[in-house]
Design a protein around this nucleic acid. Sequence first.
DNA 1: CTTGACCTTGCCATCATGGGAAGCCTTATC
DNA 2: GATAAGGCTTCCCATGATGGCAAGGTCAAG
Lengths: 142, 142
Amino acid sequence: MNIGEAAKASGVSAKMIRYYESTGLIPAAGRTGSGYRVYSDTEVQMLRFIRRSRDLGFPVEKIEELLALWRDRSRQSADVKRLALDQIDGLARKISEMQAMMDTLRHLADACCGDHRPDCPILVDLGNGPAQGQATARTARR
Amino acid sequence: MNIGEAAKASGVSAKMIRYYESTGLIPAAGRTGSGYRVYSDTEVQMLRFIRRSRDLGFPVEKIEELLALWRDRSRQSADVKRLALDQIDGLARKISEMQAMMDTLRHLADACCGDHRPDCPILVDLGNGPAQGQATARTARR
DNA sequence: CTTGACCTTGCCATCATGGGAAGCCTTATC
DNA sequence: GATAAGGCTTCCCATGATGGCAAGGTCAAG
């Protein structure tokens, strides 16, 4: 199987397959006499594993660990579960950060009448800095 | 005010202040005879505006628009509100993507007993790809 | 005058991905 | 056999926002 076929079969672009190879995430593929990479079903399966892991938000660094566990028949499922739980924690943290941003924005947007007039509480808030007048003056307070 | 003081006063690092200047987000600061950048309170306020906008997740590209509206005394608050609502939509979209990842991971983690044994539904799922056994066989046609 | 803290520019790295160029290989068609 | 299309190869560049480091100039206190 050529890299293009492997890409279609795995959902990983040819570009990324080469990149993963260059960084050592996957072993170097075999080559034809003329230098084309060749992929077996096993390798395509590994690529799909990577794709799926990326879809779940794992950074490549963690996928390296996941792949190692995948290949290790004497692994302990606790190790896999820990990676998954860490990933859940990371996602939860990012989600709550974004939720906080969204709540603030929603609040501001609700206060803005959104018409042709220039008065806008959103701009006022942005101009005043985080949570109002906190730490606004360690300089010439003119 | 030197760049270091402006950085402390605005919450934007000196590095980023120079970067924003180089990209044209902010106008070039004045200079002392020896080449040091000098900042007025007005400029620090603009930096705080940027910082606050970044904290709400706006990309620099959008901050450019926000700054333009901020400076425009004949702006229409509707334009500001639209930017805010777009940002809310973007955040909501990302949050729901991450939430979906998290739900899947939680489901998988719940199914994994997480002990010393190697059997692990998480790895099985990752190995099977999205929604199972779809397109697993376009194999060795060569 | 020396020392240390601060400023300047410039380059490199991140993280995962896409784009493009220049050139070789393969396959199909005439 | 020649030619065209399309796939492959490598290499370089760009993203977005940020940090780090290095070499060298500047300023202020001692």
